[in-house]
């Protein structure tokens, strides 16, 4: 099914699907540029009707591969599902926001921003959600280093006496 959708997307939005040597069966790798238009298309097109955004997951694939955002979509009408993956540049990760397509994306995107520093372009209220507003760094990135202090309180590094 994912193969069919990727063919449709290639036809409708040329250059949007990233071409790979082996065509993946369980997900569609997308180029982020037209993601907002594609999201609207797959939500409203009667054949697909992906009306429910299940989950947005940020991923750090390591030093060479950079970051990735993964969307799990589901259709309540047709009961089918799809996973969309958008690879991003580590230094300047920007992806169009789908917060206005699926309102549930609002908090999901804020969480991914909070943990990975990925900017969702067009999000109307992009702030940290789980961490304090003045937190520095993106904790779920693999190269994250814990700060030595927070508001003057030392963060204990030695586990001695804990166990």
């Amino acid at each position: 099914m994912s193969k069919n959708l990727s063919e449709v997307l290639l036809e409708k939005f040329p250059g949007s699907v990233i071409e790979m040597e082996e065509i993946p069966t369980d997900h569609i790798p997308l180029n982020g540029d037209k993601w907002f238009e594609i999201a609207l298309f797959i939500r409203d097109e009667p054949d697909w009707k992906f009306d429910s955004l299940q989950c947005i997951t940020g991923v750090d694939l390591g030093e060479e591969n950079g970051l990735e955002v993964r969307y799990n979509l589901h259709s309540m009408v047709h009961s089918h599902k799809i996973e969309i993956r958008i690879p991003l540049n580590r230094d300047k990760p920007v992806v169009p926001s789908v917060e206005q397509v699926w309102r549930v994306g609002d908090w999901f995107e804020r969480e991914v921003y909070d943990m990975y520093g990925i900017t969702f372009k067009g999000h109307r209220d992009l702030r940290r959600i789980l961490l304090p507003d003045d937190w520095e760094g993106w904790p779920l990135r693999k190269d994250y280093e814990e700060p030595a202090t927070y508001h003057g309180i030392a963060v204990p590094k030695e586990k001695e006496g804990w166990e």
Partner: peptide, 20 residues
Amino acid sequence: DLGFYIISDGSPSPSRVKLR
């Protein structure tokens, strides 16, 4: 709907666990 997104890199600990 309680969702788990798990990524494994083949090592004994998960590379990513996301709880929806």
